[in-house]
């Protein structure tokens, strides 16, 4: 018996009441594409599953006052099909399109991916680079906002406790002249966990040919997705040039510390990929359009 009860709720309120009632023995389930396997392999244990995946109030992608807001139960397929994301936040649209297979994307949700906290989850890497925040409901009726930078504690461990908390919404600000891209390498072209995932978000100042803001998130090179702070600093330090991108990539290379893995490759190889892919993803990001107030005109690198 992997679980004893499976309850599909009609409202958010009902979900929170059930969690309260079972006091840690019930947990929320979204698409379940990871959770079902974890329960079957007894990596996690639970008596009651509370399915919130069909709640319409948790499924939306919208833009409000320069912010993108996404309901936690939005599926990867919905994200990947969103014209809004492809227009303004390419990195997230790309990330959602990269998850597993069409079958997995049709069921798996962005919220589930976050709570599940796997180190190379595609959308998580993108959202880290977007400096997103999550809105979480507690079963005492309270609500809190947690930034992505504080969300992950270790492999498979996030701050959100699905036995008492509900991840409601993910939001992030669009940057002026935003450029973004996802770099991904895997051992085959579909249905494969990444060897390396890089989410990059930039805000460019075309006039001065430099960056207002630069965010690089890389995984899996540590137990949690990692922001490459040195590389980001480097990018802001000077006018844009090819040399600058190379230095930033070198900084990301220095900071990355992936472990040797018989399945994902040895440390030296994976570090080298961080360098190459950071550089390439920076290049592709700079070639995109997005965010708010984007005007014609190119950046010279």
């Amino acid at each position: 018996m992997y679980w004893e009860k499976y309850l599909k709720v009609k409202t958010l309120h009902e979900a929170m009441e059930i969690l309260k009632l079972y006091q840690g023995k019930a947990r929320l389930i979204a698409g379940g594409t990871d959770l079902v396997l974890q329960l079957r392999e007894k990596k996690k244990r639970v008596s009651v599953l509370v399915d919130i995946s069909d709640l319409p109030e948790l499924q939306y992608i919208k833009e409000e006052h320069g912010q993108i807001k996404i309901g936690a139960m939005t599926t990867h397929s919905q994200l990947a099909a969103s014209p809004l994301l492809w227009e303004k936040v390419i990195v997230l649209a790309q990330a959602a399109s990269s998850v597993g297979s069409p079958q997995i994307r049709n069921v798996g949700t962005v919220g589930g991916n976050i709570v599940n906290a796997q180190p190379a989850a595609d959308t998580v890497v993108a959202l880290m680079a977007l400096d997103a925040k999550v809105v979480v409901f507690n079963n005492d009726g309270g609500e809190e906002k947690i930034p992505f930078s504080e969300l992950f504690l270790g492999v498979g461990e996030s701050k959100i406790d699905p036995t008492s908390q509900l991840l409601k919404e993910i939001s992030f600000s669009l940057l002026p002249e935003m450029r973004s891209s996802l770099g991904r390498l895997a051992r085959r072209k579909a249905l494969a966990l990444p060897i390396l995932n890089i989410g990059i978000v930039l805000s460019v100042n075309k006039k001065e040919n430099r960056l207002h803001e630069a965010r690089i998130c890389v995984a899996p090179v540590a137990p949690v997705p990692m922001r490459m702070k040195e590389a980001e600093k480097t990018l802001l330090s000077r006018k844009l040039s090819d040399e600058l991108l190379i230095s930033a990539s070198k900084a990301a290379f220095d900071a990355a510390d992936p472990r040797n893995s018989k399945l994902r490759g040895n440390t030296a190889y994976r570090k080298e990929l961080v360098r190459v892919m950071t550089y390439r993803t920076l290049k592709t990001a700079l070639a995109t359009r997005g965010g708010v107030g984007d005007e014609a005109g190119s950046i010279t690198v």
């Binding site: 051992r187 085959r188 072209k189 579909a190 249905l191 494969a192 018989k262 399945l263």
Partner: peptide
Amino acid sequence: LMEEIILDDGKIINSSFSNYLIPTIKD
């Protein structure tokens, strides 16, 4: 290019379709 049973002292460490990879239609 991709298929290989990886052993650690006689133990197969990639004994599922998530880590023993065969070509997909995209490959």
